[in-house]
Simulated assay, not measured.
Amino acid sequence: MPILLLAAGIVLLDQSSKIYVLSRMLPGDSIPIISGIFHITLVLNPGAAFGLFEHQRIFFIAVAALMLGAVAYYVPRIPTGMMLLRWGTGLMAGGAAGNVIDRIRTGYVVDFFDFRIWPVFNIADIAIVTGVACIIFTLLKSGQEKDDSLDK
């Protein structure tokens, strides 16, 4: 259940931040927070990271649905002691759900964090990247532990 609460919290935070930005800005508007370094810039992204696969709404919704289905299947099978894997899964699922809500509702994802050296992103993107990093770290660590036990 905590994984579901984490995912729901990410969706709530993500969607409320997007609603707030949309209510105060127009697409292309940019507010400097730290001039030249960090801005809040409203971008309506019809693609994936870096603008890849623009206007492939059905594809992105299908991928998110498959991923969320896989999460629903595997979460009960994750051992309770593997907390980082559980947290990573919750973060990834919450982020994917937050972005797919945008795609279903409007056909694009609302992005607004702009560091000027990286594509504009949102809270859901942060959750996805952090979640995937936690999952990869856990899998690599557990693979290393298995390798170490074979050496003994």
Rank of each mutant, 00 (worst) to 15 (best):
A49Y: 02
I101T: 08
P76K: 06
F112H: 01
G107H: 03
R105I: 12
I78R: 05
G95W: 04
V109E: 02
A62L: 15
F50S: 14
L91D: 01
I104S: 07
R105L: 14
T106K: 11
P46R: 04
P76N: 05
Y108T: 13
G98E: 08
T106A: 14
L66H: 04
F50A: 14
D111H: 03
T80D: 13
G47L: 13
F115M: 08
Y74Q: 04
P46C: 10
A49H: 03
T80R: 12
L68W: 07
T106V: 15
D114C: 07
L84A: 04
M92N: 01
G95Y: 05
Y73P: 04
R105C: 10
R77Y: 11
N99R: 09
W87P: 00
L66P: 07
I61N: 05
G98C: 04
V63E: 03
Q56W: 08
Q56S: 13
Q56H: 10
I101D: 02
L84I: 09
G51P: 06
D111V: 09
V110M: 09
E54Q: 14
V110H: 05
P46L: 12
M67G: 06
P76S: 05
I61Y: 06
D114W: 03
I61M: 13
G69P: 07
W87A: 10
I61K: 01
D111R: 02
Y108K: 07
F115D: 01
G47K: 07
